[in-house]
Every structure is written in structure tokens, then in C-alpha cells.
Design a protein around this nucleic acid. Structure first.
Lengths: 235, 235
DNA sequence: AAGGTAGGTGTACGGCGTACACCTGTCAAT
DNA sequence: ATTGACAGGTGTACGCCGTACACCTACCTT
């Protein structure tokens, strides 16, 4: 009877439930501490039970990626190719910001998942249909945008990707620039906003990632528009 | 006596020897199959011996990254900031092409290594000194270039990163586009060069990665030059 | 001769992904 | 009502991983 209660209380596993739990776990604990065993425990189930719903861990990761890609808004038509692309890319960025582990996960897999292919495909479609791009130019544009088209550019300084940021009310840790490094890398220190007054102890405000992302995005989009307008044919 | 021979025959370990062996192992077997145990075996030594030269596996990876970064040619002055940057970035690209595991390794670490900081620092220095960039614009430029500044842009289709390409005389596997996917992703299929004649069985030649890389690089550099010339101040 | 030290060794532990055999409840066909 | 297939959760076990810790040994300094 007690068994019956238990049987009733927990909704049965499903691929979807497994994937969503995995995404949640990676969101809060970081991708590197996501294991089949911890995931199973989270779901109140024995590790091997997961294998009835995903073939192996790699397939689990693929599924997780597809969950994230599925959160990207569909394209909103109107306003020209640049506006459509820009909007959608910023939507993709928001999705990936909610799942800081996703960039590395995506980059580490060596085959694009069907969901990613679908997303890329529709991006090319926008270029072709809304912008009148040649297949060739569209091709190069996709490469030029690189991962930016998926809403992220890997920031070398970014440490928010591997684990949940230590706590909800993290009081803005001084990510500016360690004082002793400022001497060795003066140009970087200047950029980081460390105004080297008497002592190299002042710390800048870090970067406005959103601004930087849009700066680069628009730089690319504008350059591409210029190519398109002059009827790009060859290099 | 036999022991003496053995002692003499094998050069003693050193941090440098460990790092170089690790790089070689990752080059030929893929980063995901690089383990402390295999590395030790390769060096004819017991696993724990490595820990006298590197603190742990993460530090080993950092060291490996620095080996790769160390292979990037120093900047060659002359011809204006764009030329200097372009040359050096293409040199970085060559270094990373020799070590396909490096991009993921670099992106997966959450702190830039000193060697990478030094490289970035000298890049900013080129912008400032040779191009007369403001600190602000130099900052945004660095973000805009993203990982391209390190010689790579993560290609979603690229499968050469995780392991040694199966063999030296690999006869150009048909990476074009699986015929059944062509139907689902027509735009991508068109781009892949799969001329969909009667049957969707034709396969294109893939991408010229070097061309794509330089296309995007020049697109960015030209856009940046335009900003610089018009005396960029704010967005 | 004494003793410190750098560097290689051996053992062991806990965590990982997952193969494989097993059990159990449900449902369709007999 | 009986059967048997089958979907889905279980338990055990294996080999791999990173690495803590105690040890040994050769060499260098004094």
C-alpha cells in the first residue's frame, strides 16, 4: 500500500522530464557537475533508469541544447532583413544568458543538433527571402557572424559560464583587474577602467556585456549591409 | 646496474616535458581522451609523478594552452595597424589549426591564462600605438573581434576539433550534407553546395575555412577602420 | 657522515558512465 | 480469466578517472 502511494506520488519519467531536470540542474550547479547519477537522484530514481529515455550522456547534452534552442523566439517579420536578424539574435542571446552552460556545451559537440540546424536554416532563409542575398553571400555571412548568430560570443574574461554564480545576492565581486596584473598588462588594465592613479588599486566597473555584444553585432550587420547594397559578387 | 641503465636512459621529467607530451597526446588522440594516466604512461612514469610538475589537471590544461599561445608569432610592425593585426591573427590561426583541441580548451577555462592576457595586451597595444585608437574604441574592438582575435571562430559544423582526424590520408569524407537533411533544411543545403538536381544526392565541396575566416576578419577590420577614421567617440 | 630535499612510487578512495541481467506493472490478444 | 509481450524502473558490477597520502631513494649541501 505504501508502495502504491509512492507509485502514485511521483510522475513517471519521460524524455522531456529528464531533459528539463538536466537543464535546471546545469543552470544552478554548472554543467561540469552535471552527472547521470546526480540527475537521477534529483529525479528520485536510480541512475540506470535514465537510460530508458536517453541513449547516453552525449545524447542527454544534445537534448539539453535543443531545449535551449527551443526557447529562442521565432522570427518576427518586418523592417528589413537586418531588423529581423537583429531581433532574433538578441532573443537567442537572452535564451543563452538564462543557461550559461549552453555555449560551451554547443561548442563542445562536434555535430550540430537538428534544432540548431533548423535555427540556422531559418536564419539563412531570412537573409535570402527578406534581404535578397545570394546563396554565396548568405553563406559567408553565416560564417562571419559565427557563434554571434547563436547569441553568444565567447568572452575570454567571462567566468559566469561554468557554475551558478555562487549566490543570488552576489555583491558584484571586483572582477576589474588584479592590481599586480595591471603592471604586466597595462593596456588591458587601461581597458578594464583601472585608472592607475598613485596606487594601482582602483578597480573599474567591468564591461557592459550587452553593449559590447550589440556593438559587435551592429558592426557586422552594417558591414554586411554595405556589401549587399553594392551587389556583392566576389571577394 | 640495470636500474642504472634505466635511470640514465630516460631524461627526467620536467614541467616542460610534461606539457609538451600532453600537447602531443591531445594533438593525436583528442583532448577528451587525454588523461593523467595515459599521459604518465606515455612518459614512462607512474601517474602521480606528474603531480610533482603540475598541480592538477586544470593547471596542466592551462600550461598546454600557454604552449599553444607561445607558438603565435610576435607582431611584425609596419604597414599600419590593420596589417599588423591581420598578420598576427592569421599566425594565431595557424597555431590553433595545429592544435584543434585548443579552442575548446581555451573556452572551457574560466580564467584567461597569463600567456593569453599577454597576447591580448599586445593586441591592444597595437591598436593604441599603431592605430591611435582611443582606449574606449580599442576595448570595443577587442570584444567585437571576440575569439577571432585568437585565430578561431567556432564553426558549428566543424568536426575536426575533438580528435585526430582518423588518419593521415583521409580521402576527404563527404561532409557536404546528408541527403535526408537537405529536405528539412533547404537553405543550408543550398549553401553547402548541394545542387539539388533531380535527386538530392549530390554533395558539395564543403567550405573553404581559410577563406571564410579571412572574409569575416576583413569585414570586421574594414568596419573598424571606418569607425576609426571618422574619429569614433560614442555609439 | 648527516640530513634535507626533489622527484618518482604504490596504494587507495570516491566519483564517473554504462553494460547486463533482472523485476514489475500494464495492456492486448487469446 | 490467462497469457505473454513489453515498457520502464532496479541492482550489481566493471573499468576508467583525478588525486590524497605515505613512502622510498638518489643527490646535494654542510
Amino acid at each position: 500500500m505504501a508502495e502504491q502511494v509512492e507509485t502514485l506520488r511521483r510522475t513517471p519519467l519521460s524524455r522531456d522530464r529528464v531533459l528539463r531536470a538536466a537543464v535546471a540542474l546545469a543552470d544552478e550547479a554548472g554543467i561540469e557537475s552535471l552527472s547521470m547519477r546526480k540527475l537521477a537522484q534529483e529525479l528520485g530514481v536510480v541512475p540506470m533508469a535514465l537510460y530508458k529515455h536517453v541513449a547516453n550522456k552525449d545524447e542527454l547534452l544534445d537534448g539539453m541544447i535543443d531545449v535551449v534552442v527551443g526557447e529562442i523566439d521565432p522570427p518576427v517579420a518586418g523592417g528589413g532583413w537586418k531588423r529581423v536578424l537583429r531581433r532574433r539574435i538578441l532573443s537567442a542571446r537572452q535564451a543563452l544568458l538564462r543557461h550559461p552552460w549552453a555555449p560551451i556545451a554547443i561548442e563542445s559537440r562536434n555535430q550540430a543538433t537538428p534544432a540548431i540546424l533548423g535555427y540556422l536554416n531559418s536564419m539563412v532563409g531570412t537573409l535570402r527571402d527578406e534581404g535578397g542575398f545570394s546563396t554565396d553571400l548568405a553563406h559567408h555571412v553565416m560564417h562571419a557572424m559565427g557563434s554571434r548568430i547563436l547569441g553568444f560570443s565567447q568572452e575570454l574574461f567571462d567566468d559566469s559560464r561554468r557554475a551558478g554564480r555562487s549566490g543570488p545576492a552576489d555583491p558584484e565581486p571586483p572582477v576589474g583587474f588584479p592590481a599586480e596584473a595591471a603592471a604586466a598588462f597595462p593596456h588591458l588594465a587601461a581597458i578594464a577602467g583601472a585608472a592607475s592613479h598613485d596606487d594601482a588599486s582602483v578597480v573599474g566597473p567591468g564591461c557592459d556585456d550587452q553593449f559590447e555584444f550589440e556593438f559587435a553585432l551592429d558592426l557586422l550587420l552594417d558591414g554586411i549591409e554595405r556589401l549587399r547594397q553594392q551587389g556583392w559578387t566576389s571577394v
